[in-house]
Simulated scan of single mutants.
Amino acid sequence: MDALSAPLTVGFNHVATGTPDLDRIIAFYRDAFGATVKVEIPKGPEHPRMAIIDVGSGSAMNVAEVPEGSLVGDRARIGGRGPVDHYGLAAPSREALEVLLERIPAAGGEVGEITLLGGDTWSLFFRDPDGMELEVCAPAHVG
Rank of each mutant, 00 (worst) to 15 (best):
M1G: 15
M1K: 10
S5P: 04
A6D: 12
T9Y: 12
T9E: 10
V10H: 14
N13E: 03
H14Y: 14
H14G: 05
V15N: 03
A16Q: 15
P20D: 01
R24F: 03
R24M: 06
I25E: 07
A27F: 02
A27K: 15
Y29S: 07
Y29L: 08
F33Y: 08
F33P: 00
F33Q: 00
F33S: 12
F33N: 03
G34C: 04
A35Q: 00
A35C: 10
T36L: 10
V37R: 14
I41R: 15
I41H: 14
P42G: 07
K43I: 01
K43S: 13
P45Y: 01
P45Q: 15
M50N: 11
I52C: 08
I53A: 07
V55A: 04
G56M: 10
G56D: 12
G56F: 04
G58D: 01
A60Y: 12
A60T: 00
M61K: 04
M61T: 01
M61P: 01
E65M: 09
V66R: 14
V66G: 10
S70M: 15
L71H: 10
R77L: 11
I78C: 08
G79C: 12
R81T: 00
R81I: 05
G82C: 06
P83Y: 01
P83E: 07
D85L: 05
D85N: 15
G88R: 07
L89G: 06
A90G: 05
A90S: 11
R94Q: 13
L97A: 04
L97C: 00
V99N: 10
L100Q: 03
L101E: 04
L101G: 03
E102I: 03
I104T: 00
I104Y: 06
I104C: 05
A107G: 09
G109T: 02
G109A: 02
G112M: 09
I114Y: 09
L116C: 08
L117D: 00
L117A: 05
G118S: 14
G118L: 13
D120V: 15
D120P: 13
D120L: 15
T121I: 14
L124V: 02
L124T: 01
F125C: 08
F126G: 09
P129D: 05
P129G: 03
D130Q: 02
E133K: 09
P139F: 03
P139S: 08
G143C: 04
